[in-house]
Lab assay of single mutants.
Amino acid sequence: MQIFVKGLTGKTTTLEVEPSDTIENVKAKIQDKTGLPPDQQRLIFAGKQLEDGRTLSDYNIQKESTLHIVWR
């Protein structure tokens, strides 16, 4: 499925993911596209910070959802 990651600059990155992907895995995909290391990424969805060990489905993140990224 496709999801979007929007940064503070307003730039949006598209990712191809599975609902079973962990947040850690998603951060690795973001690094592949942007070069930003996972330890500098904070992902937010529906006002919650996403924890590395959880999956996208744990947070009810579905296709075409938009996550927000904040740099540490």
Rank of each mutant, 00 (worst) to 15 (best):
K33A: 13
K29Q: 09
I23D: 00
Q62G: 12
L8Y: 13
E51D: 09
M1N: 02
G53Q: 10
E16H: 10
V17T: 03
D39S: 13
E51Y: 06
P37Q: 09
L67M: 04
G7F: 15
G47V: 02
S20Q: 10
S65V: 05
H68P: 01
L56E: 00
T13N: 06
Q31C: 09
N25C: 09
M1Y: 12
A46E: 15
A28R: 15
S20E: 09
N25A: 14
A46Y: 08
D52Q: 05
F4C: 04
D58H: 10
K11T: 11
N60M: 07
K48L: 11
N60F: 08
K11H: 15
S20H: 12
Q62E: 11
L50T: 02
R54I: 05
I44Y: 15
E16Y: 13
K11E: 13
V26T: 04
E51S: 07
S65W: 03
G7C: 11
K48F: 09
I23N: 01
Q2F: 12
D39P: 07
D58K: 02
I69V: 12
G35R: 05
V17N: 00
T13M: 15
I69R: 02
P38G: 09
Y59I: 02
I61S: 01
K6V: 15
E51P: 02
G7L: 14
I69A: 04
E24W: 15
I44K: 05
I30T: 02
T9V: 09
A46R: 12
T55W: 03
I30L: 10
V5W: 02
N25D: 09
T13F: 15
P19W: 06
T9S: 13
I23E: 00
A28F: 12
I44N: 05
D39V: 09
L67Y: 01
G7T: 13
T12Q: 07
T22H: 04
I44Q: 06
L8H: 13
L15V: 08
I69Y: 05
D58T: 04
G53W: 13
G35I: 02
V5L: 11
E16T: 12
T22I: 05
R72M: 14
T34M: 13
Y59Q: 03
E18K: 14
D21H: 05
S57C: 04
N60A: 07
T13A: 08
T9C: 13
Q41A: 09
M1V: 05
T22E: 03
E64S: 10
T13K: 05
S57M: 10
G53H: 14
F4L: 06
P38M: 15
F4W: 07
Q49A: 12
S57P: 02
T34W: 15
S20W: 13
N25E: 14
D21A: 06
G7Q: 09
V17P: 00
V17I: 04
Q31F: 15
G47T: 04
V5Y: 03
I3Y: 01
L50M: 06
I30E: 00
E16S: 11
E24F: 13
T34N: 04
L15S: 00
V26W: 00
P38Q: 11
Q41M: 15
Q62V: 13
G47D: 06
I30F: 07
G53T: 09
T55L: 09
Q41C: 10
F4M: 06
Y59R: 00
I61Q: 01
F4P: 01
K33P: 03
K48G: 05
K63G: 13
F45M: 04
G10I: 13
K6E: 08
N60V: 04
T9W: 15
I61V: 10
I3T: 01
P38K: 15
K6H: 14
T14P: 08
R54F: 13
G10C: 08
D32K: 14
W71L: 15
I61Y: 01
P38S: 13
L67Q: 00
D21R: 02
A28V: 10
K29N: 03
P37M: 07
F45Q: 02
W71E: 13
R72W: 13
L43W: 03
V5H: 01
S57Y: 08
K6C: 11
L36W: 15
K6Q: 10
K33G: 04
A28Q: 14
L50H: 00
T22D: 03
W71M: 14
P38H: 10
G47A: 04
E16M: 12
I30Q: 01
I23P: 02
D58R: 02
E51K: 09
G47F: 04
Q40W: 12
T9P: 12
T9N: 15
D39E: 14
E18Y: 15
K6G: 04
I3L: 05
T14R: 10
P37D: 07
L56P: 01
K33V: 11
T13C: 10
L56K: 00
G35V: 02
K29Y: 06
D21Y: 07
D58W: 09
T13G: 04
G10N: 08
V17S: 02
T22N: 04
L8A: 10
W71D: 10
S65F: 07
G53E: 11
L36K: 05
I30N: 01
I44R: 06
R54P: 04
E51W: 05
M1T: 03
L56Y: 00
Q2C: 07
K6F: 06
K29D: 02
